[in-house]
Deep mutational scan, measured.
Amino acid sequence: TIDEIIKALEQAVKDNKPIQVGNYTVTSADEAEKLAKKLKKEY
């Protein structure tokens, strides 16, 4: 679900690790936030 994706992003940001979500690779908190907002609009 979208919530699980967002939790995974938040965890990756805390661990400061890049995370791959679908076609996106998120490497920073800023990118994670942008991706989360984008995904919320889509779903």
Rank of each mutant, 00 (worst) to 15 (best):
K17I: 11
A29R: 06
K34T: 11
Q11V: 05
L9C: 01
N23Y: 05
L39P: 01
A29T: 06
N16A: 07
I19D: 01
A12Q: 02
P18V: 07
K17S: 06
K34R: 12
K7Q: 09
D15P: 01
L35I: 05
A8H: 02
A8I: 12
L35Q: 00
I2E: 01
Y43A: 09
A8S: 07
K17D: 01
K37I: 13
A36T: 05
I19W: 06
Y43D: 03
E31N: 00
P18N: 03
D30V: 12
T27K: 09
A36Q: 05
A8N: 04
Y43W: 12
Y43H: 09
E31Y: 03
L9S: 00
L39D: 00
V13G: 05
P18S: 10
E10F: 14
G22W: 13
T1Q: 08
Y24A: 04
S28D: 10
I2G: 02
L35R: 00
D30P: 04
D15W: 11
I6Y: 02
Y24E: 03
N23A: 11
V26T: 04
P18L: 06
D30F: 13
K40I: 13
P18W: 10
I6P: 01
Q11D: 06
E33Y: 12
K37Q: 14
D30I: 12
E33G: 07
E42Y: 13
A8P: 00
Y24N: 03
K38V: 06
S28P: 01
E42W: 15
I2L: 11
K7S: 08
Q20V: 13
S28I: 03
T27I: 10
L39Y: 07
K7E: 07
N23R: 09
K40T: 07
E31G: 02
E42L: 15
E10P: 00
Y24H: 06
D30W: 14
K38R: 13
E42R: 14
E10C: 14
D3A: 13
N16Y: 05
E31L: 03
K38L: 14
I5P: 02
S28A: 03
K17A: 06
L39V: 01
S28Q: 02
T1P: 07
E10L: 14
A32S: 02
N16H: 07
T27Q: 11
T27H: 12
A8V: 08
D30A: 14
K34G: 06
K37C: 15
L35H: 00
A32E: 02
T1A: 09
N23K: 11
N23F: 06
K14E: 05
V13C: 08
V13I: 14
L35F: 04
P18I: 07
